[in-house]
């Protein structure tokens, strides 16, 4: 049996690994460096893109994108007459973060993406358009970890117990939003899988206070296990319900339609920066 100090052994690892990590020092989150110019280029791209029939497999590769690594863009499936533009941080080319294949592409391997008791297949998701033209992102159900701020009340309803003591339904009602639940998306106990994080609430309030009355779709996921529903302010459709882990982690994203183009801004940045960035993007686009 061999025993050695792994701490000491680490000191002798290949120089290239040390240099690689040392070089990383000082890099800043590139997602926050997406400029108005790169955004404009991405938007121009979106206009000319064909409807991709509700699949997520034909987006433009990072290499072909007019936006560089600091803000690669992808054109995702068409949504009715709108287009969906996915702007994201491109960290490790996370173009297919919704699928297990993307994890493999990142070198994580399917097993890496699975939490205990999850199978890799559980984590697969897909974009679909329903018969009414609603856009969905479906993630197959599995257990959901409920953050401390959420509890099930005596009736089994999931409630927010931090700053706002209201159920998701109440919350949506306050914003004039009628969420449609995706039947595919309940936790193992059958509870509706709508959870909102503090950042989601803050985000909602910020926008609400700005009197947004456009078709603004939000799908905000902040913490790994938070579930960010997708909502439409000023309309009554839900375009997406999604999982908070297994691929859609550490990202905030906003879906919104503007001038006939549907956009998704998805940001992976340092904690606390994402919402500010999304707000900036929306402002740049004239939505705010």
């Amino acid at each position: 049996m061999k025993t050695n100090s792994i701490y000491e052994a680490l000191n002798n690892v290949d120089d290239k690994f040390i240099s690689e990590a040392a070089k990383a020092h000082g890099k800043r989150p590139m997602a926050l460096m997406i400029t108005a110019a790169s955004l404009a280029a991405a938007l121009a791209l979106a206009v000319g893109i064909r409807n991709l029939s509700g699949t997520m497999g034909n987006y433009i590769s990072p290499a072909d994108s007019p936006v560089n690594q600091s803000g690669a863009s992808y054109v995702a499936p068409g949504f009715g007459e709108s287009k969906l533009l996915w702007i994201y941080d491109s960290f490790n080319n996370r173009k297919g973060e919704f699928t297990s294949d993307a994890y493999e592409a990142q070198g994580l391997g399917k097993s890496e993406m699975s939490l205990p008791n999850d199978s890799a297949d559980d984590q697969n998701g897909e974009f679909t358009l329903d018969a009414d033209g609603n856009f969905w992102f479906n993630v197959y159900p599995h257990d959901i970890v409920i953050p401390d701020s959420f509890k099930l009340d005596e009736t089994g309803e999931l409630r927010w117990f931090r700053d706002l003591e209201m159920s998701p339904a109440d919350l949506f009602a306050e914003f004039g939003v009628s969420p449609l639940m995706n039947d595919n998306f309940t936790n193992s106990g059958g509870e509706p899988s709508v959870m909102v994080s503090q950042s989601t609430i803050d985000f909602f309030y910020t926008l609400y206070n700005k009197n947004i009355n456009k078709n603004v779709y939000f799908d905000v996921s902040y913490h790994t296990h938070d579930i960010g529903g997708a909502y439409i302010i000023g309309d009554n459709k839900v375009i997406s319900m999604k999982d908070g882990h297994g691929g859609i982690v550490e990202q905030n994203r906003a879906f919104f339609a503007y001038d006939g183009v549907m956009y998704v801004v998805s940001v992976c940045g340092t904690l606390g920066d994402e919402n500010d960035y999304i707000m900036d993007v929306l402002a740049d686009l004239g939505v705010l």
Binding site: E20, A21, N92, Q106
Partner: peptide, 21 residues
């Protein structure tokens, strides 16, 4: 350790090294 580090993605490797090296 070197072999194992070589199996990781760059992101994983950098994270590991930043933390433990």
């Amino acid at each position: 350790l070197n072999d194992w580090l070589g199996t990781l993605s760059e992101k994983q490797r950098v994270l590991f090294m930043r933390r433990y090296f």
